[in-house]
Design a protein around this nucleic acid. Structure first.
Lengths: 243, 243
DNA sequence: CCCTCACATATTTTCGAAAATCGGTGAATT
DNA sequence: AATTCACCGATTTTCGAAAATATGTGAGGG
C-alpha cells in the first residue's frame, strides 16, 4: 500500500514527528491526559504504534509515562523554564563558541541567508509575526545556523532537544500576548558578532537573548504556570474582597 | 497475573532497563544487528513491547533505527568517544560546581559513604575489581553522589545519559585488558577537594579523571574501534608477509 | 454522614497474526 | 559479461482483539 508515512520512514516515526509538533505548539496542552482512543482517531494509527511514539517522547521529556496509568503531556512550570534556560545558556554558549572557531565561508553564508529570510518574513508579517508557524521554523533555522559549525554531534543533539523544550514555552506565551518585543535588532547584533569572530560579545549576546526571551515568557504568560503565585488575577475580580 | 515486571512498572519498562544494561555491558555488541526473533526469545516479550523499548533506546542513542530495516546497537568509534568525553567534561564540571556550592551535610555524608563502599569493595576484589558489575554500580553511585546536590534536574539528566554512554566504552575496554590503573588515589583527591569546597581543584580533578579514563580506554581498547588504524595487530602475524 | 470494600466499567498494556517491506537469487535482455 | 527485473523467502512493521490494570459507583457498616 502506498500509504502516508510523510517525511518519516515508518508510520511510528511520522506519528512521532506530528505529536512532537502538536505538543510543542500546545495543540496537546501541558499536563493533559493522553487517552489512547482520542489519539488513535487523531493520528489514525494503532495502539502499539502510538506507544512507540509516546515512548520516545517520554525519553525526550515531552510526555511523562505514569506507570500503568498511561501518558500525560509534560507539565510546564516556572522552575522548569528557569532550569531549562540556565542549561541552554551553558550549551548554546559552548556550541556557538566552537562554531565561531570552526566556521567556514559556507557557515557565514548560511547565517546571513537565514537571517535575511527571517527578517524579510518578519517585515511581511508585521506585528504579529511571532504567531506564524513559518516564522517559528525560520527562526529555528537561524539559531541552528549560528551553531551549525560546531563539530560536536553530541553537543548539537543536546542543544536541539533543549531548544525544542524551550520552544514550547515560547509558543505558549505567544498565544496569550498582543505583541512581542522587537527582536530583529538583537538577532542582527548576534549575526555581526559571529561573523566578526568576536567570540566574547557573541557569547554574551546569545546569553542575553536567551535569558531575556525567557523572562519575557514569564512576564507575559506567568499566570499560566501552576507554581507562580497569580500576580494579577485579571478576571477573577468578582466579589469576596478579602485578600 | 502476578507476572514479572521486576523493578519497572510495565513490561516494556522492564525490558528497556534490561536491554540498556545489556548494551552498556556489551552483551549486545556495538553495531550488532538486533533481530526481533532473537530478542523475543531473549527477553520473552512480544514484537510491540520490544519496539517500545527499542524506540526509547533510540532516543537515548544506544541503538539506531534504520528506516524500515530494523535496529542496530549504536556503533562505537574514537570520534564518538572523544566527543562524548569533551561534552561530559563540560557537563560534569558544571554539575559539580553547583553541587559544591549547594551541598549540605547529607551531601557530604553520601560522598563519604559511597567512596568508602567503593574503596572497600575494590580492596576485597583485588586487581580485577573493574570486571565486577557490583563495583561498576558503586562507582556510578559515587560519581552521582558528587554531583547530587546540583539543583538542576535538566543538567543531571543530561549528565546521567552521557555517563551511561561513556560507561559502555569503559566496559568494552575492561574485557580486553589484564589490569586497570590505580584510580583509588584519584577518587580520594576528588572527595577531599569537594568536601573542602575547593571548587577550582575539584573541577580540575574531575576533568582530569574523565579525560585520563577516556585516554586509557583508547590506549587499551583502541584496536576495537573501526576508525583508528590498527596500531599493533598482535595476533594476525600469521603467514603472507606482504603488507 | 463518612468510610470501606466489592463489583462493574473504562482504560491501558500486551500479544501474535497479518500486511508491508527488504534482500537475495536467477532468468532474460543488451 | 554486465545489467535489469521479477520473484520468493526472511524480516520488520502495523493492526486490533484479548488480558491486565485502574477507576468510578454504590451498598453496607461504623
Amino acid at each position: 500500500m502506498e500509504d502516508r508515512k510523510a517525511g518519516s520512514e515508518t508510520r511510528a516515526g511520522d506519528v512521532l514527528q506530528r505529536m512532537r509538533l502538536d505538543i510543542i505548539n500546545c495543540v496537546l496542552k501541558p499536563g493533559e491526559k493522553l487517552r489512547f482512543e482520542t489519539l488513535r482517531t487523531m493520528y489514525a494509527v494503532s495502539f502499539s504504534t502510538l506507544r512507540e511514539a509516546l515512548s520516545r517522547l517520554a525519553a525526550e521529556n515531552l510526555v511523562i509515562a505514569e506507570g500503568q496509568r498511561g501518558f500525560v503531556v509534560a507539565p510546564v512550570s516556572i522552575a522548569d523554564l528557569n532550569d531549562l534556560t540556565n542549561v541552554r545558556v551553558l550549551i548554546e554558549r559552548e556550541a556557538l563558541s566552537k562554531s565561531i572557531r570552526c566556521g567556514d565561508d559556507r557557515w557565514e553564508g548560511n547565517i546571513l541567508a537565514t537571517y535575511h529570510r527571517m527578517d524579510k518574513l518578519q517585515q511581511r508579517l508585521g506585528r504579529e509575526y511571532y504567531l506564524s508557524e513559518e516564522w517559528s521554523a525560520v527562526h529555528g533555522e537561524f539559531h541552528y545556523a549560528l551553531v551549525s559549525a560546531c563539530t560536536s554531534p553530541v553537543l548539537l543533539e543536546i542543544r536541539s532537544k533543549l531548544f525544542e523544550r524551550a520552544h514550547r514555552y515560547r509558543r505558549m506565551s505567544s498565544q496569550f500576548r498582543p505583541y512581542w518585543r522587537e527582536k530583529g535588532a538583537e538577532h542582527k547584533m548576534i549575526v555581526d558578532a559571529a561573523l566578526d569572530r568576536d567570540e566574547e560579545n557573541a557569547l554574551r549576546l546569545i546569553e542575553e537573548h536567551i535569558r531575556e526571551t525567557s523572562e519575557n515568557v514569564i512576564e507575559h504568560a506567568g499566570h499560566l504556570f501552576p507554581d507562580l503565585k497569580p500576580v494579577a488575577p485579571k478576571r477573577r475580580r468578582s466579589l469576596s474582597a478579602a485578600e
